[in-house]
C-alpha cells in the first residue's frame, strides 16, 4: 500500500495493525529490488501486519519528522509509535524477524 504525507496519520499512526513501512525513492536501486519481497510479505502477513511504502521525494514531511538518513529505511510502527528501524536493503528473512518481534 502506498501512503503519503497527507494520509500518513490516518493510515499508519492510527492503524489498528502493526505496520512495516519502507521509505523509498525511484533513484534508489536497492529500494526497487525490495518491491517483490514487500509484495510477498503483504500476502503472507495479510490481516496481521500492514505493509506500506512512502516515496521520500514526493512526500517530504514524514521523512523529516522521523529524521531519515538514507533509503531504503524499513520501520516498524505499533500503536502509532516508531518501534524499530533498519537502513539498507534487507533480506526477506531479516524483515520477517523484524515483524515477528512485534506480533509474537
Amino acid at each position: 500500500m502506498n501512503v503519503t504525507d497527507k494520509d500518513f496519520n490516518e493510515k499508519i499512526i492510527n492503524s489498528p495493525l502493526p505496520v512495516l513501512i519502507e521509505f523509498w525513492a525511484s533513484w534508489c536501486v536497492p529500494c526497487k529490488m525490495m518491491d517483490y519481497v514487500l509484495n510477498e510479505l503483504e500476502e503472507e502477513f495479510d490481516g496481521k501486519v500492514l505493509i506500506a511504502k512512502l516515496n521520500i521525494d514526493r512526500n517530504r514531511k514524514t521523512p523529516q519528522r522521523y529524521e531519515l538518513t538514507g533509503v531504503p529505511t524499513f520501520s516498524i510502527f505499533k500503536d502509532g509509535k516508531l518501534i524499530d528501524s533498519r537502513i539498507g536493503a534487507q533480506s526477506k528473512k531479516d524483515l520477517i524477524s523484524m515483524i515477528e518481534k512485534i506480533i509474537k
Partner: peptide, 22 residues
C-alpha cells in the same frame, strides 16, 4: 545486473543483504 533483495553475502560469520547492488 543487480542482486535480488534476498541475495546474501556471508563473511567472517556475519551476513549482509546484497539487494540492489550491481
Amino acid at each position: 545486473g543487480l542482486f535480488p533483495a534476498d541475495a546474501i553475502i556471508e563473511w567472517d560469520d556475519r551476513k549482509w543483504s546484497l539487494g540492489g547492488e550491481t
